[in-house]
Design a protein around this nucleic acid. Structure first.
Length: 264
DNA sequence: TAATCTGTTATGTA
DNA sequence: ATACATAACAGATT
């Protein structure tokens, strides 16, 4: 599911429901989902929930519980205890409700850090800035001497965080850049355009509750930004700008949609 | 039915 | 430094 707009939506929803509540018990139903689990965060209060790139951070007492949804992770907050087939973890709250972490593909992960070390240990220590914080000039400096395809650079969370396969395609279409262009050939102006487009596209998606292509939902609420996508998932359809048929190719091992006429 | 695809990331090899 | 394959896994699609 999750790129920046989807995580933003999930964090907002979780915040409303969970901040101020106390965790009374944590059940790890699938061991690998939370490899370094210990009871440090039991009987502690959730002080805040924040986002860093595609990560969700629960601030619990002096600890930071880091959650990544990977492909299909989903949260549900329920007033009944009813874990399902794909429930990998359940947080029991002293208020009487239950936070389920559901993930059919079991790719999502939880990691526990402390307030004092979470920013200087993996996975957050190497995380790049989001488009909201990164300037075009900074992006240019990060990529212009490297030998990468531009799409690959946008998917690299160490360079810029929050962009995944859907939005990479949309941003490159909006900036008229071919996904296979080498980063050495991307100009400063194009970097500035990439940042501006990223913000514009993220903001719009957030307004629509995120993009639901397969299974994404935020606490059960699906988004509708898929209706705003210009090229991603639109193979065989006419380009909304020039009418050329949208093509699907593989770049960096990922399905990539683009208009060969508009994007150079 | 079987092969192939999927919104992510980490890891190992060349 | 980068490319490429693979692994983690389940279900939908072809």
């Amino acid at each position: 599911m999750p790129e920046y707009p989807e995580i933003y939506t999930v964090v907002n929803n979780l915040k409303e429901k969970l901040v101020g509540k106390t965790i009374s018990k944590i059940e790890v139903l699938y061991k690998n989902v939370f490899y370094d689990y210990n009871n440090e965060i039991v009987n502690k209060t959730i002080k805040d929930i924040r986002q860093m790139g595609k990560y969700i951070l629960f601030f619990i007492s002096d600890n930071v519980l880091i959650s990544h949804l990977r492909m299909e992770g989903k949260y549900a907050v329920k007033d009944k205890y009813e874990p399902g087939k794909h429930t990998l973890l359940v947080m029991h709250l002293s208020s009487g409700d239950y936070v389920e972490y559901n993930d059919t593909r079991k790719f999502g992960r939880f990691e526990l850090r402390t307030i004092s070390n979470y920013l200087n240990t993996l996975p957050l220590s190497e995380l790049g800035k989001t488009p909201y914080k990164l300037t075009g000039k900074e992006l240019y400096n990060l990529i212009s001497k490297r030998n990468l395809k531009i799409k690959q650079a946008l998917l690299n969370q160490k360079i810029i965080s929050g962009i995944g396969n859907i939005y990479a395609d949309e941003i490159l279409f909006d900036t008229k850049i071919s996904p296979t262009r080498n980063t050495k050939d991307i100009t400063l102006t194009e970097c500035e355009n990439i940042i501006n487009s990223s913000i514009k596209i993220f903001d719009k998606s957030i307004d629509f509750g995120g993009t639901t292509i397969r299974t994404y939902s935020s606490l059960g609420e699906k988004g509708s930004n898929q209706n705003n996508l210009k090229v991603h998932t639109r193979k065989g359809e006419p380009c909304p700008v020039c009418g050329t048929i949208i093509e699907k190719i593989t770049v960096a091992g990922r399905g990539t949609y683009y208009c060969r006429n508009c994007q150079k």
